[in-house]
């Protein structure tokens, strides 16, 4: 039995050695928000966050991440309350077909968690592997900047409250 910690929940799973995290998320756990697009580490549609780092689920063996903190797109919103990145992607029109969106948001979250105030170049660099074929990227960059603003605002609000 392997223990995986996904979105703060523990799962006890019987895994085969070759099963990727992407397969486990989608096929065993029904967490289909993480998308399958190239299965070869070329498009980053399957980006998840493991111990704070953006990682591609399609080339990560599930048994190798036993005990690690795994965060997927499903773990971002708190109940009805969207994560600022999700709000920003919606409000800034950064979503077209939405297929690359979960990966984009997860890669952006990993960026904002380590750098709350990224400049344009840092956003571009962080998302350089994430392919989007619909939206032309500009609105995605805008959404990430806006989310950073929202998150800083929330943080300040929280500090003031404390």
């Amino acid at each position: 039995m392997t223990t995986l910690i996904i979105n703060k929940k523990q799962y006890q799973l019987e895994l085969k050695g070759h099963e990727t995290l992407l397969e486990v998320l989608r096929d065993h756990l029904g967490l289909t928000g993480t998308k399958t697009s190239c299965q070869d580490a070329e498009c980053c549609a399957c980006t998840v966050i493991i111990n704070g780092k953006a990682v591609l689920a399609c080339i990560t063996l599930a048994c190798d991440v036993e005990g690690a903190e795994i965060l997927t797109i499903e773990g971002l919103a708190r109940g009805d309350e969207l994560h600022p990145l999700q709000t920003a992607f919606l409000e800034k029109g950064a979503v077209q077909c939405g297929f690359c969106t979960p990966g984009m948001i997860m890669a952006s979250k990993a960026l904002l968690d380590r750098n709350p105030q990224p400049d344009q170049q840092q956003i571009r660099d962080a998302l350089d592997g994430n392919l989007c074929r619909c939206a032309g990227y500009s609105k995605i960059f805008e959404a990430v900047s806006y989310a950073a603003e929202l998150m800083r605002g929330a943080q300040k609000g929280k500090e003031a409250h404390d």
């Binding site: 289909t32 997927t72 919103a77 969207l82 919606l90 979503v95 948001i105």
Partner: peptide, 22 residues
């Protein structure tokens, strides 16, 4: 510039695409 009517499902990963169906 009204936000997308189907946007919430897409940003939360909740929307099911064909490959997601079982």
């Amino acid at each position: 510039s009204v936000p997308r009517i189907d946007g919430r499902g897409l940003v939360t990963g909740e929307s099911k695409f064909t490959y997601d169906l079982k």
